[in-house]
Computed example of a mutant assay.
Amino acid sequence: MIIKKVIMNHVKMRLHEPFKTSFGTIQDKDFALLEVVDENGTTGWGESVALPDPTYTEETFKTSWHILEDFLIPVLLDKEISHPDEVEEIFSPIRRNYMAKAAIEGAVWDLYAKRKNLSLAAALGGTKKKIAAGISIGIQQSKEELLNKIAGYIDEGYKRVKIKIKPGMDIEVIKAVRSRFPDVPLMADANSAYTLEDIDHLRKLDEFNLLMIEQPLGVHDILDHAKLQQSIKTPICLDESIQSLNDAKNAIELGSCQIINIKIGRVGGLSPARQIHQYCKDKGIAVWCGGMLEAGIGRAFNIAISSLENFTLPGDTAGSSRYWKEDIITPEVVVQNGYIDVPSNIGIGFEPDRKRIQKYTVKTTIYNH
């Protein structure tokens, strides 16, 4: 296939409610929505996941747009590609900028699947017909508000609850949740809010039978995570620390974690995500798919990658209505009894709704030679 044209839309959508973590609050989500068009006029879709501020990683919506427009799209135009795995090598002279790379690499995967008359899940090697859905809840104004939200999501059938924590809003919050919901599969996400000086404090989590604590220490603290994991019983899951297959290898070799969260945007695309998945499978490390407040197209990619065998824990891929008044795909993603059906239609399996996309589009730029 030859990429003859790329259309990039700046889309801005408002979340149902602000999403608060230890590193900030998000209400409006700007993202790039991409269409890559081949020599036959077939289109593949992709979505950027970078946040507005460089808090989760160094990337932002604006830097991703810049890297896509000035570097990635030019190098991909008129390039003949046999398989999407080749995109990683094509982009290799451009360092990092993984979220920008993932946005357009995903569109190439969608295009490839359509050309092969396969669903994206099947093209990736996925075998599951449905995936377990977990829910991620931001920091709330009060314990009671958090408990009420958890109760509602449990009633909806979600298979796992993740709550955000930070110093001063951790042990007592989790204690309250466990007191009311003693058996719910529960995990805590710290988003790098702690240091090794907090070992004794974090050890207090062991009494609550958590599935895991996600990214308790800094992004580059793989060694410190190994020291922490030796000191606590609660399994550590690494998120921000794993930005490549090499990072995963180092973390597993050092004993820094027992679980890895694979986010497609954070690792640079579906091909790197698939490599990390396979390596973790070979090493007996469980993985799951985290969320980045995606709209429908990004959500479709999360569903597809989660259909791979070693995604054994519920991910953060909730239904569309969890975040958006209306999504930009039809049908919208729906959770039924705690599960999401993996679509069997070709490509991402959902149809982008062009009227809704236009409604939320700030600007459109077309790139071709």
Results as ranks from 00 to 15, higher is better:
I3H: 04
I7S: 07
V11D: 02
K12N: 08
K12V: 07
M13A: 15
E17N: 11
F23Y: 13
I26R: 05
D30H: 06
A32D: 13
A32F: 04
V37G: 00
N40C: 07
G41P: 07
E47G: 00
E58P: 00
F61C: 03
S64G: 13
W65D: 02
H66A: 05
I67G: 04
I73C: 15
P74M: 05
K79F: 09
I81F: 01
I90Y: 13
F91N: 02
S92N: 10
R95E: 03
K101C: 12
K101W: 01
V108N: 09
R115H: 15
L120I: 04
A122G: 02
I137Q: 11
L147V: 04
Y158G: 00
K159H: 02
V161S: 10
I163A: 09
G168H: 14
I171C: 01
K175W: 02
L186I: 08
S192V: 14
E197D: 03
D200C: 02
D200V: 01
R203I: 04
L205W: 13
L210W: 04
H220S: 09
I222T: 15
Q230T: 07
S231C: 01
I232V: 12
C237V: 06
L238H: 13
E240D: 11
S241E: 03
A248F: 06
S256I: 09
I259E: 14
I264D: 13
I276T: 03
I276M: 03
D282E: 13
G284L: 01
A286L: 14
V287Y: 08
W288A: 02
M292C: 07
E294T: 00
E294D: 04
G298F: 03
D316G: 07
S321E: 15
S321A: 15
E332H: 13
E332D: 14
D341T: 15
V342N: 01
P343V: 15
I357H: 15
V362Y: 06
N368C: 09
